[in-house]
């Protein structure tokens, strides 16, 4: 059944005008300070490299083809994508479990747990990363403690590895996941779960068929936040990953440091493409099915 397209009447027009008026300042701001610079940056990547000028003289695709055919860069791209998705998965599992447990707590107890999760965010990124270095380093708290309890093998080499980055990022990212999922779980009427139970669904099947799908909006928000924050995390990655574990962000930084503007531009746009691509896939996959009622 197709509904007739509504004719715009006066009140519609007024609503549009109001929306335009309210939306104009932020849109103008984004256009001038975000869209235009991005376009400028994009052009820089399509010009021949010139260390003395931000934008080279001639048009070329060589910057893209060079990087996308170089095994080293491809490796970093795959590593960035892989570690990003891995971190999202770990954060989703731990974060969902924590949020699920917290949802059943009394509101007051829940607030305390939430504060506990937020506590790491109150410490600066740099301070927190150095803290992890002090814990995970070759002569750090972890290794000295192990030695103190009688472990006499070679020291654990966690620092400057993917593990260190994952551990370090998790303390920043988990709160985003927990809060997103917790909010979604909070909005699910307890009666849905009771209804499922009355219809013969065990707690596990109730979770699978009812709670999980209904919390999809929160999972989507949390997953997007964590993934995008992982892609743009620099301090944690460079301090805890060190020279051995480099991600795309680190390469952009290195390129800028050495005045390779064109290369920096290309790497930035690859990063942007990854972020956009994965976001679109996540949104399509976790779109709440009919939860809002499908209006045809």
């Amino acid at each position: 059944m197709k509904k007739p397209i509504p004719i715009k009447d006066r009140s519609d027009l007024r609503a549009y005008r109001q929306a335009a008026l309210l939306g104009a300042p932020p849109i103008a701001y984004l256009l001038v300070f975000f869209a235009l610079p991005i376009l400028y940056l994009f052009v820089a990547g399509l010009k021949t490299p010139d260390p003395t000028a931000f934008i080279g003289a001639d048009w070329t695709f060589a910057n893209y083809t060079d990087i996308l055919s170089d095994g080293y860069y491809l490796g970093v791209i795959v590593r960035t994508l892989g570690s990003g998705l891995g971190i999202v998965l770990i954060a989703l599992i731990i974060g969902y479990a924590a949020a699920y447990k917290m949802e059943s707590l009394k509101p007051q107890t829940r607030t305390w747990f939430l504060l506990l999760f937020l506590f790491p965010l109150m410490v600066s990124n740099v301070v927190r990363a150095y803290g992890w270095m002090a814990i995970l380093g070759r002569t750090g708290v972890l290794n000295t403690s192990l030695r103190a309890v009688g472990y006499d093998g070679p020291p654990l080499r966690i620092l400057f590895s993917m593990e260190a980055v994952v551990i370090g990022l998790m303390t920043i990212l988990l709160p985003y996941m927990v809060i997103s999922v917790l909010n979604a779980l909070n909005t699910i009427d307890r009666r849905y779960r009771e209804a499922a139970a009355s219809l013969g669904a065990s707690p596990w099947r109730t979770f699978w068929h009812i709670t999980l799908p209904l919390s999809a909006p929160g999972v989507l928000t949390g997953t997007l936040l964590v993934f995008l924050l992982t892609l743009s995390a620099y301090i944690t990655v460079s301090l805890l990953g060190g020279p051995r574990f480099k991600l795309l962000v680190s390469l952009v930084f290195d390129a800028v440091q050495t005045f390779q503007w064109a290369k920096a531009s290309v790497l930035s746009f690859i990063l942007l493409a990854l972020a956009l691509g994965v976001s679109v896939i996540l949104i399509l996959a976790l779109r709440p099915a009919g939860a809002g009622g499908r209006s045809k």
């Binding site: 009427d189 849905y192 209804a195 799908p213 209904l214």
Partner: peptide, 11 residues
């Protein structure tokens, strides 16, 4: 069971 709010699964 029929609930007061019906509790129909929205999805």
């Amino acid at each position: 069971m029929v609930f007061q709010s019906y509790a129909l699964f929205p999805h």
